[in-house]
Amino acid sequence: MRTISNSSSPLLKIQIHDIESRLTQGVMSQRPGSCSLVLMERGSGEICSAKDPLKLAANQLVWLPHGETAQVRTAPASRAIIAVLPKEVISRSLPEGAPGDDLQHYLKQRLTQQGSEAAALDFVKSNLMRMRQEIYSPQPGTEQILTHLCSLVFLQIWRNLYKAKDVRPVPKSVVDRFFAMERRHRAEHLSVGDYADRIGVSRDRLGAEVRRATNLSPRAYLHQELIREASELLEISSLQVAQIAYRLGFSEPGYFNRFFQRHTGQPPGRYRKHFRRTREEASDSFAAWP
């Protein structure tokens, strides 16, 4: 079994397991806080789960959601490629529009796609192998490439569901529509009233629903998501602070600096330096271990 991983960021914590053995059984357990995509290329195997065990066959894709405790076992002379993704990666790499909205719902449950077309399996496999290459030898832009590769894999899963007519209309609550719309329009800095109008509810109702789901006002939630994405970009990207500001829809880097400092207590440049210094100190402490 060959495993490639790196622990620098959520995207680089993705692990790609290539399980292939002629004589012995392969075994892999899903880690807490992660999701897994199993591509059974040939042979057979099983997913051992107290809740819902499943036999595996060639040309099968299986998605194991966050929170499911399971163990993947492959029979001798079988091959499976398993991608283990931290749950944080999903929200960052879901495609935009209807596919992303559908997948946000469907990826919370186990998905089994049996007898997938060869072209679809090859597409998923090639993207997983490209992800492995990027993680093994990260370069400038690796995080962005990994985000797009994950998005392509998720789109193929959605397409398989669509072709199998397994995509059904997902009931959208007010909060679900607000969350989906916020992801698509984050950089536009829409007002709470704009969101309420587009969803088709009063501002008071939107506020009540969002508070019930998040303990935050809609405005506070919008600011929280802006700060979350800004923090991630400062941590894992090589973009300059001004580039991050424009990417997130701020017309002036100075306004972005004040906004970020008001919510985090420090300007973005200092936040980035502190994060990198802390990470380097942690790496040095591990390197000093016998």
Rank of each mutant, 00 (worst) to 15 (best):
S5N: 07
N6R: 04
S7L: 13
S7A: 12
I14T: 08
I16F: 02
I16S: 00
T24V: 14
M28R: 11
R31Q: 12
L37P: 02
M40T: 06
G43I: 07
S44M: 09
E46Y: 07
C48G: 13
K51G: 09
K55Q: 08
L56N: 03
A57V: 12
A57G: 14
A58E: 15
W63A: 01
P65Y: 00
P65E: 01
H66M: 05
T69L: 14
T69P: 04
T74L: 02
A75G: 05
A75S: 13
R79M: 11
R79S: 03
L85T: 07
P86E: 05
S91I: 09
R92G: 00
E96G: 14
D101S: 10
K108D: 03
T112K: 01
Q113D: 05
G115M: 06
E117C: 11
A118H: 09
A118C: 11
L121T: 02
D122G: 08
M131S: 08
M131D: 05
S137E: 07
G141H: 03
G141Q: 13
I145C: 07
T147S: 11
S151P: 15
L155I: 15
W158R: 01
Y162C: 13
K165Q: 15
V170S: 08
K172W: 12
S173N: 04
R177F: 06
M181Y: 02
R184V: 02
L190D: 01
V192N: 05
G193P: 07
D194K: 09
Y195H: 06
I199F: 03
R203H: 11
R203T: 11
R205C: 02
E209S: 14
V210T: 08
R212L: 10
A213W: 04
N215Q: 10
Y221N: 05
Y221S: 06
Q224V: 04
E225K: 13
L226S: 06
L234R: 02
E235Y: 12
S238V: 14
L239V: 04
L239D: 10
Q243C: 10
I244Y: 06
A245F: 04
A245R: 04
Y246L: 02
Y246Q: 08
F250I: 03
P253C: 03
F260A: 00
P268K: 02
R270K: 12
R270E: 14
Y271S: 09
Y271V: 09
H274G: 06
F275W: 14
T278D: 11
F286H: 13
A288G: 10
W289K: 07
